[in-house]
């Protein structure tokens, strides 16, 4: 991440690596969860695409990426100085 004069990372990088690794692991598990025998997707007319394999996984990922990228673009439009409203 881009930094702004902050101190060192508060969590040691090696620990972060472990955590991230664990995250990727359970991400995989979550997708595989759809294979469980008790997995009975709820059927809704018109929403069949929701039940395609791994839909929530990629939808969640893409949503977030798009959200952040869009927000970053929006920032160019709306960002002002902190005391913007206090100035007269």
């Amino acid at each position: 991440m881009s930094d702004h004069g902050h101190g060192p990372p508060s969590v040691a990088p090696e620990k972060v690596k472990v955590i991230v690794g664990f995250l990727f692991f359970i991400c995989a598990v979550a997708v595989l969860g759809e294979l469980l025998p008790s997995f009975h997707p709820h059927e809704h007319a018109g929403l069949e695409f929701v039940n395609t394999f791994g839909f929530h996984a990629w939808y969640g990922f893409l949503s977030c990426v798009l959200l952040v990228l869009a927000a970053a673009q929006m920032r160019k439009l709306v960002m002002r100085d902190e005391d913007y409203y206090d100035r007269d």
Binding site: L23, C27, A30, H40, P41, H56, C64
Partner: peptide, 17 residues
């Protein structure tokens, strides 16, 4: 199972993002 799994997928992949 379906609720739990799909919700976990959504959240975990957000975290991955």
């Amino acid at each position: 199972t379906a609720h739990v799994v799909t919700q976990l997928q959504l959240l975990l992949y957000s975290a991955a993002a």
